[in-house]
């Protein structure tokens, strides 16, 4: 397919479905779709060669997604945050793109382009 291979982490089912569709529209292959920190970390532990980028919802049912971001950062895999917060709580990743909800398609596209792949 040739598009970037993307991991999606989003706990709200409705939003996840839309994000999967939007990412597919943008030519991405959604290779993983997780709804919690635990399942995302487990997914990252498994076979995931060739992951080009990730889209991470910051607040997953009250937990902050940062442990997942740290694993991605250590592997030099680019990622973007989505959030309902105007400002991120305790953000340690200042250079990372923040997509505010509801998500703007053009901004999502720009973020995905930066993944390469």
């Amino acid at each position: 397919m040739g598009g970037p291979r993307v991991l999606l982490v989003e706990d709200e089912g409705l939003v996840a479905m839309m994000m999967e569709d939007l990412l597919a529209d943008l030519g991405c292959e959604v290779v993983g779709s997780c709804d919690s920190i635990a399942s995302a970390l487990e997914w990252l532990d498994g076979a995931n060669d060739g992951l080009d980028g990730a889209v991470l919802d910051v607040n997953l049912g009250g937990e902050l997604v940062y442990p997942v971001a740290e694993v991605l950062a250590a592997r030099q895999i680019p990622f973007a945050f989505t959030t309902g917060y105007g400002m991120l709580p305790e953000n340690r990743f200042e250079a990372v793109t923040i997509l505010t909800k509801p998500v703007n398609l053009a901004k999502l596209e720009a973020a995905v382009r930066a993944f390469g792949g």
Binding site: E12, L14, V15, T83, G84, Y85, K101, P102
Partner: peptide, 9 residues
């Protein structure tokens, strides 16, 4: 914002 995202979806 989350609800708006659901509506968007």
């Amino acid at each position: 914002k989350n609800t708006l995202a659901s509506v968007q979806s």
